[in-house]
């Protein structure tokens, strides 16, 4: 479905995740963060850039793997994006919600 956010029309899935990363920009990221009640600081942006880089390289994302990334430890990741940091941060970053393996 389509959604107008920060003056840009983007396509999102039922859960509100962008389906096309090309439609993402920093203003969209800011607006998505506001929807999730997160105020973005430079630390947030470092994590978001890291997530986007991983996604571009087709590398899987998990809390465990982010904890080992040297970008942020799990404790801080939770402080930055409280209550489900992985699903919130990936939404703001404009990348798919990581599939938790079955």
């Amino acid at each position: 479905m389509e959604k107008l956010i920060a003056g840009t029309t983007v396509t999102v899935n039922e859960e509100g995740y962008l389906t096309n990363f090309a439609q993402w920009n920093e203003a969209v990221g800011e607006a998505l963060a506001a929807e999730a009640n997160v105020v973005l600081t430079p630390r947030h942006w470092q994590v978001i850039n890291y997530l986007q880089l991983q996604h571009k390289s087709n590398l899987p994302l998990s809390i465990r793997q982010i904890g080992k990334s040297n970008v942020v430890d799990i404790k801080e990741f939770y402080q930055l994006f409280p209550n489900g940091p992985l699903k919130i941060s990936t939404k703001i970053a404009g990348i798919p919600k990581p599939a938790s393996c079955l």
Partner: peptide, 20 residues
């Protein structure tokens, strides 16, 4: 839900997640 465990607190018998 969304509970990512950090530790088992044996003394107080509770589990604690990274978000506190």
């Amino acid at each position: 839900s969304d509970f990512a465990i950090e530790q088992v607190d044996n003394d107080n018998k509770k589990i604690i997640d990274y978000g506190g």
